[in-house]
């Protein structure tokens, strides 16, 4: 039942929030912005490409809701991908110093010759930095949790590795990685060029992913209120 609850919460999260993107934001250029379109490329567990859309409702507390889709490189299209839906909220605004919190629900999928994995997870990130109208620099720290994962193994896995492997939903949480790094950006006209880079470490703080660094180069295009 625990998994059912998680999935229902995830669905509610996905459908109840207007859609936006996981892009890097220059909070100082958000004034009358209502829509943000984003494209990004980087190293995110693998070389990956993403697109996103962000929506900024007209609220007192600056909020950006966003949705993002990314796909790693490789010869097979759409066998692996990740979708993130959630929002970013500006919580601290003192002079040009800003602090924000981002929360996302995730669905991701990977298929290899041996197994197909489908996962529901969450991603949380806090940023704190110095924001000017033309540029910003901020520190970021986050936690990416794989909450529940479905495994479906291929015949090849059963023949080569383990015939009696058990397919199905697996708990408790099957993974989790912390990340920390820096983000920066340059803004001109309706465009932000952004760069984030940092390091990932597994939740035990002892082991690291196969590619322990992450890099994300993004381009935001802002559309304003009428």
């Amino acid at each position: 039942m625990k998994k059912v609850t998680i999935i229902l919460i995830f669905i509610a999260f996905v459908f109840c929030l207007p859609k936006v993107n996981a892009q890097l934001i220059n909070w100082n250029t958000m004034g009358s912005t209502q829509h943000i379109i984003n494209a990004n490329v980087g190293l995110d567990y693998s070389v990956s490409y993403g697109i996103g859309y962000g929506y900024k409702p007209n609220t007192k507390l600056p909020i950006i809701m966003d949705a993002n889709f990314s796909m790693p490189s490789g010869k097979t299209l759409f066998d692996d991908f990740k979708t993130k839906i959630g929002g970013q909220m500006l919580l601290l605004d003192i002079s040009n110093f800003r602090g924000a919190l981002a929360l996302y629900g995730m669905y991701r999928r990977q298929e290899t010759e041996l197994v197909r994995l489908q996962n529901f997870g969450s991603d949380m990130k806090a940023t704190f930095g110095y924001y000017k109208s033309k540029w910003f620099v901020a520190a970021e720290a986050g936690f990416d949790k794989a909450v529940v994962t479905h495994f479906k193994h291929s015949q090849a896995f059963r023949e080569k590795v383990y015939a009696d492997v058990a397919d199905g939903w697996y708990e408790p949480a099957t993974g989790g990685n912390f990340s920390y790094g820096l983000q920066t950006g340059y803004s001109f006209k309706k465009t932000d060029l952004t760069l984030a880079l940092g390091k990932r470490i597994s939740q035990d703080f002892k082991t690291a992913p196969f590619l322990p660094l992450y890099v994300n180069l993004g381009l935001n295009y802002r559309l304003s209120y009428h």
Partner: peptide
């Protein structure tokens, strides 16, 4: 290869599965 399916298969799994020490 940085763009290869093989690297992707090996590395992308890290967000689904992390084992402690």
């Amino acid at each position: 290869g940085l763009w290869s399916e093989t690297l992707n298969d090996a590395a992308y799994t890290d967000q689904f599965l992390t084992g402690k020490e």
